[in-house]
């Protein structure tokens, strides 16, 4: 206690120390908020002219560059030699690089993704089993929001390696409907009914024209592909509407949608399979017979 009391603080804090300290305080107190505000302004200004992804990149570039400049200036004010720091950072960088190969791979993949632009913020993509809307494309990962409102972080490396489907890249989409009708139905009538349904639905685009294709003589049904086009935002609505309208019209027109069924026969050598109708009395008899056996 006595030792502290005798320390001459005024002799320790010299004028040479106060001025750099004030400069550091100014740099951190004014410079950092200024950089954050500038980055936000750049983000806002570029949002109108560039895509959401490019605006985000511009904002982050300004922010990170500004922060680096301020910290370099702070180090200079505090008397640290930057050459030594950079040298140390280089050695540390090699060490960290070996230790974080995955992260570096993600960063490089991220740079490729940003330059190649296979998708942008707001697009709906499908990667493997995951489907969702892109929230952000960052240096290490892409963030998605799935349709059941889950957050998915997908490493950039995965996106470079895997097949990525951008569902909303183009403005229109095709709704494919696989339809089966009973063998007794007239395929031409089915085609006319389907085309009429598409014609009457205002969300179904007249052009490109709907596609009707006789796909196969299936096990239980004549199988068709009926494909109609819509604006990408109407995809779910149109696919549901078409299914409902097809069922309704097929019922009205008497067109049977068959369920899978199987016909058993014993071949031409024998007659039809013998069938014996069994009533409840017979059942009791047969039970008693079987019990005696």
């Amino acid at each position: 206690m006595t030792t502290l009391a005798v320390i001459d603080w005024q002799s320790l804090i010299t004028r040479d120390m106060i001025i750099p300290a004030l400069r550091v305080a100014l740099l951190l107190g004014i410079g950092l908020p200024a950089v954050i505000i500038t980055a936000a302004l750049v983000g806002r200004a570029t949002a109108k002219r560039l895509s959401a992804q490019s605006a985000m990149l511009a904002r982050k570039a300004v922010l990170y560059f500004g922060i680096i400049v301020i910290f370099v200036a702070v180090f200079q004010q505090t008397g640290y030699k930057l050459t030594a720091l950079i040298g140390a950072a280089g050695i540390a960088g090699i060490a960290i690089g070996f230790a974080s190969q995955t992260s570096l791979s993600n960063i490089i993949s991220g740079i490729f993704l940003i330059s190649e632009k296979p998708f942008q913020v707001g697009d709906i993509i499908k990667v493997g089993e995951t489907k969702g809307t892109i929230l952000s494309i960052d240096l290490l990962s892409v963030k998605l929001r799935t349709f059941d409102n889950q957050f998915v972080r997908m490493p950039n490396e995965t996106l470079i390696k895997e097949k990525v489907t951008n569902i909303t890249r183009f403005p229109i989409r095709r709704v494919d409907l696989n339809i089966g009708v009973a063998y007794k139905e007239d395929p031409k009538k089915v085609r006319d009914v389907l085309l009429d349904i598409a014609d009457k639905n205002s969300n179904c685009l007249d052009e490109p024209e709907p596609l009707f294709r006789f796909v196969n003589f299936g096990d239980s049904a004549l199988e068709f592909l009926f494909a109609v086009w819509c604006v990408k935002s109407d995809y779910l609505k149109l696919s549901t509407e078409m299914m409902l309208e097809i069922k309704e019209r097929f019922d009205a027109e008497g067109i049977e949608i068959p369920f899978p069924h199987r016909t058993l026969y014993t071949g031409s050598a024998t007659g039809p399979l013998p069938i014996r109708l069994v009533d409840s009395q017979d059942k009791q008899i047969s039970k008693s017979e079987s019990s005696q056996l």
């Binding site: 403005p171 229109i172 179904c204």
Partner: peptide, 10 residues
């Protein structure tokens, strides 16, 4: 009126 697309799909 029914919707339609004019031009190519892209």
């Amino acid at each position: 009126l029914s919707d339609t697309w004019f031009g190519d799909p892209m």
